[in-house]
Write a protein that binds this DNA or RNA. Structure first.
Length: 270
DNA sequence: GACAACCTGACC
DNA sequence: GGTCAGGTTGTC
């Protein structure tokens, strides 16, 4: 489901609702989504206060008094805030009971996502976080150009690789490559400095616009309050197979590239 | 690089 | 029945 803009939206919607609240107890319904011992979850979480939420790439981090909870939503994971009267969503695998009758439900239709309990001081050298590439917004064009030149592979595969750049997934990769006029199979090391600069610029642009629109709801993504995003309305190529390209009118192509269904315009992406 | 695997569901 | 899905990982 979610890429950087969706995780950022979940973070922003949940933050004011749950910060300062205390976890009272939890109900684990599907233990396999936990990457740490379920006993440890049960033992250490009750009594801890939610201090802050943060995001790194596609990971959401809930900072508690002693620990941090690391969430990776993969395809269909989500975290939903429930007022006392709200009914429990489908596919709830973990339920946090907070004070005031508030609940927080981790839901995940496909069960690919996971949650890990980490000591706050271990976060900085966590095996996954430590390997993530830079946040797109923290990159400048010189650094990005240099990064592209460290590899010689297709742009699509490169941008999806979280160790190269963190947070892009299938939607925003296709949308950015279209805006940049670059073919998804174009080799990273063949880009000129100017092309690399343009690509980085549109990556930031598409992510910023998507955050402003609260993410893309293509199928089941909703934010922390259960609201759909709107950015799918601005998609120019994603899921537009056979439709005319908004720039040149040629049919949008669909091809499996880097293992993912990829949409692009053969006319204006070179 | 390609592909299967992890799951459940939507759509043709 | 088959195909596809906002992701990642392990295997040839």
């Amino acid at each position: 489901m979610p890429e950087l803009p969706e995780i950022e939206t979940i973070k922003r919607t949940l933050s004011p609702l749950i910060c300062g609240r205390v976890i009272q107890r939890l109900e684990i319904r599907l233990a396999k989504i936990l990457r740490s011992d379920p006993e440890l979850f049960q033992k250490s979480l009750p009594g801890q206060k939610i201090k802050a939420l943060s995001r790194r790439g596609k990971l959401l981090i809930i900072h508690l008094t002693q620990n941090a909870l690391l969430f990776h939503f993969r395809m269909t994971g989500n975290l939903i805030y429930l007022v006392p009267s709200a009914s429990e969503p489908r596919y709830t695998h973990l339920l946090f009971y907070l004070d005031q009758g508030i609940r927080l439900a981790y839901t995940d239709l496909r069960q690919f996502g996971w949650i890990e309990l980490v000591k706050e001081e271990d976060l900085s050298h966590h095996r996954i976080l430590a390997k993530l590439g830079p946040e797109p917004f923290e990159l400048n064009e010189k650094e990005f150009f240099a990064l592209l030149r460290t590899r010689n592979r297709g742009l699509k595969a490169f941008l999806l690789d979280q160790e190269m750049i963190a947070g892009l997934g299938n939607i925003y990769t296709d949308e950015a490559l279209f805006r940049a006029g670059l073919h998804p199979k174009r080799k990273t090391s063949s880009l000129s400095f100017e092309e690399a600069g343009r690509l980085l610029r549109v990556i930031k642009e598409v992510l910023e616009e998507a955050i402003r629109e609260r993410g893309s709801s293509v199928r089941n993504y909703v934010d922390g309050q259960g609201q759909r995003g709107n950015f799918q309305r601005q998609h120019l190529v994603y899921r537009k197979r056979g439709e005319p390209c908004p720039r040149c009118g040629q049919e949008i192509a669909y091809q499996k590239i880097a293992g993912r269904g990829t949409y692009f315009c053969p006319g204006c992406q070179k």
